[in-house]
Write a protein that binds this DNA or RNA. Structure first.
Length: 658
RNA sequence: GCGCCCAUAGCUCAGCCGGAUAGAGCAGCGGAUUUCUAAUCCGCAGGUCGGGGGUUCGAGUCCCUCUGGGCGUGCCA
């Protein structure tokens, strides 16, 4: 049973006749802020009293009486200005948990009308190695798929691969000019990756050199501006003088930043130029940037050679990223990348044109949208299409093929404006029937508060990130196993397996436990911490549950098949754990209300803490009576299952021992 | 310039649609182990929720404004 749902239904009946819109009021029934207020509290009486023009406490008492809660609550009291505090009967907890124990959905109610979601996430460029920037989309998107499916909705997960853009132009150009045939034959993925990096660095060098004069100019301008402000005589007015000082400070800071940027650029150039072979290559390929774009144009135009190379490279690139997905435990129903939509783009533009939605401007085909300064460009002056065009084609395809109720885009918050425009354009185009959501997330930052990079300023590869996490996890596993009082219990292979599970879990959990909208600071130390809100803490709780069953010599199946007997909640720690277990449905609902997996991590942390307290306070195997032992074993069993399921919904695995 | 986002304990962060005395972890301090995994538990200390104004019975949460920071901003994705 979903207790909160049941309480709301009781109050819905009680509110009949008092208000025409009970839903907002029912939303105000929630878990109690503090244990001393009970288990749940209803906060709507103050607001309802206002509407009715009656004293809030009277309204609260009246509605509480009409809700007929006696069978659910052992105590219902009106407190403060009109809060209704509710304390559940222990029998209600016991029957709720008994039902959850035999329910594959652990008490989470089935939806009356399942909906269909298309979830667009991960979407890496396949021509270059995945990096830290892909972790959030991949992990959050996967968790949302799992959560929605568990709730009973239909989900189509779609990896909208970047398989048709500039990155492929780089690889093709690299292959044509720099390939090492032997290495390509031996290890195509590594060689393609090398070619990508080489071309990328050559283009980067040329751009850097081209950019240098501008950087120098900016640095000079800012420095002059800062000096000018610093030399300004202070204003006589105090407030004005303060403002002046602040402006001078700011100008100085900007000047310093510009100078730093210039210095860094010069250092970068010097570093590149310290290798004569690189300089020679750069000189030989002076217009490599344009040449790469030309390769892309040829590919898009159907050039036989480039298309052949693209078809040859794709399987290698896909194998590379799939290896990472496998390690992360992430799968997709579809992987329809940009290339899939290529043939549909001209028609998208033609169709929108035919409907009178477009207007030509400076040679580009545009959709002008109300509320936006800049139009959405769907065909460039040179005739090429853009990602906006592909995104529109993708919406049309998805709507026609899957008829979804909603499409979710799990994409970096920096693209918010793009999606605002895209969704507005889609509505204009006639696709207003499907709900379109941008599930935005923040940036992964380094210790310096800037986007996470290696010390030399390169992006951090995702595979290396996982390896490092697993390596650090291994050290922890090893240390703890060595320290066990009865001697270590794992083989080297077991240690490695545990480390892989714990390390990957730490990485994913660290990401999922953040509010997705905020940036967060990446730290191995934090994510692999042994306590606090970390994956290891959850996994440890699960392992402890399994440990109890091993010690008790009971397995879950025989426990459940055994003679019935209800769960007791005499001890505060037992009751607190029972209540937390009964709230699993609320946690699922809360996580999906605004697509925030961190709501589930908050719940799991609360649950496992309560389990730890229970573990300390309440002996299970050595309980005073068989009845109590059985009751506690049932609590442990459900805890294990909820933790395992909760982590599974986050894409995280458990281990029996650690 | 315009637009969006952010500012909560020393640090990293929660805080749901406005609800009672703002919560965790880390770091700090003090306890607990002959006991089912101490990868743990219990306790102490730590706050002008960036400043100011407003709406409300009630504001960290909503509105206005200022300050500081991040991001985006017509032919990249």
């Amino acid at each position: 049973m979903d207790i909160l749902g049941e309480l709301r239904e009781r109050f819905r009946t009680a509110l009949a006749g008092l208000t025409d819109s009970p839903n907002p009021l029912l939303e105000m029934i929630r878990p109690a802020a503090e244990p001393k207020f009970g288990d749940y509290q209803a906060n709507f009486a103050m607001s309802l009293a206002k509407q009715l023009g009656r004293p809030p406490r009277d309204v609260a008492a009246d509605v509480a009486a009409r809700a007929r809660l006696d069978d659910l609550c052992q105590q219902v009291e009106v407190a403060g200005p009109g809060f209704i505090n509710l304390r559940l009967r222990s029998e209600v907890l016991a029957t709720t948990l008994a039902a959850a124990l035999v329910d594959p959905f652990l008490g989470v109610p089935r939806p009356a009308a399942p909906r269909t979601f298309v979830i667009d996430f991960s979407a890496p460029n396949v021509a270059k190695p995945m990096h830290v920037g892909h972790i959030r989309s991949t992990v959050i998107g996967d968790a949302l798929c799992r959560l929605l499916r568990f709730r009973g909705d239909r989900v189509v997960s779609d990896n909208h691969l970047g398989d048709w853009g500039t990155q492929f132009g780089m690889v093709i150009y690299g292959y044509k000019h720099f390939r090492r045939p032997d290495e390509y034959a031996a290890n195509p993925v590594a060689e393609l990756s090398r070619l990508y990096r080489l071309v990328h660095s050559l283009i980067g060098y040329h751009e850097l050199v081209a950019e240098l004069p501008t950087l120098k100019q900016t640095a000079d301008d800012r420095s002059a501006a800062a000096r000018r402000l610093a030399d300004q005589p202070p204003a006589s007015d105090k407030a004005e003088a303060k403002k002046q000082a602040a402006a001078a400070q700011k100008a100085l800071r900007q000047a310093e930043e510009a100078a730093k940027a210039l210095t860094e650029a010069c250092e970068k150039r010097a570093s590149f130029e310290s290798r004569p072979d690189q300089v020679a290559l750069a000189a030989q390929h002076a217009s490599i940037g344009q040449a790469v774009l030309d390769e892309v144009v040829r590919l898009h135009a159907g050039d036989a050679e480039n298309l052949r190379l693209w078809r040859e490279f794709m399987p290698h690139c896909l194998r590379e990223i799939h290896a990472i997905y496998e390690r992360l435990g992430v799968t997709f129903d579809e992987e329809l990348g940009e290339s899939f939509y290529h043939g549909q783009l001209a028609d998208v533009v033609a169709d929108m044109e035919a409907r009178g939605l477009t207007r030509e401007s400076d040679g580009a085909m545009c959709v002008f949208l109300e509320g936006f300064d800049a139009p959405m460009i769907i065909r460039k002056r040179d005739g090429a299409f853009l990602y906006a065009t592909t995104d529109l084609a993708t919406i049309r395809y998805r709507v026609e093929r899957w008829k979804p109720d909603a499409i979710l885009y799990v994409v970096d918050h920096r693209q918010a404006e793009h999606f605002d425009k895209l969704f507005a354009a889609a509505r204009l185009w006639g696709y207003g029937g499907v709900a379109l959501h941008h599930i935005a997330f923040g940036t992964v930052l380094g210790k310096d508060g800037k986007p996470y990079k290696t010390r030399s300023g390169d992006t951090v590869g995702l595979e290396g990130l996982i390896d490092e996490g697993v390596r650090k996890a291994f050290a922890v596993v090893q240390e703890n196993d060595d320290r066990k009082p009865d001697g270590s219990e794992f083989t080297a292979e077991q240690r490695a397996q545990i480390a892989e599970t714990v390390g990957v879990a730490a990485l994913k959990y660290a990401d999922l436990s953040q509010n997705r909208t905020s940036d967060y600071e990446f730290s191995y130390e934090k994510m692999l911490a042994l306590d606090g809100n970390t994956a290891a803490y959850m996994q440890y709780s699960y392992a402890r549950v399994r440990g109890i069953f091993r010690k008790a010599g009971v397995d879950s199946a025989t426990l459940l098949a055994g003679a019935s007997g209800s769960i007791q909640c005499e001890q505060p720690a037992e009751r607190a754990l029972a209540l937390a277990l009964a709230r699993f449905p609320e946690a699922i609902a809360e996580s999906l209300a605004d697509f925030r997996p961190n709501q589930l991590t908050v719940y799991l942390y609360d649950l496992t803490r309560k389990f730890s307290s229970f573990f300390e306070a309440c002996p299970v195997v050595r309980a005073e009576s068989d009845e109590l032992r059985r009751s506690r074993l049932l609590l442990c069993e459900l805890t294990g299952r909820v933790v395992e399921k909760g982590l599974e919904l986050l894409g995280i695995r458990v281990v029996d021992k650690m």
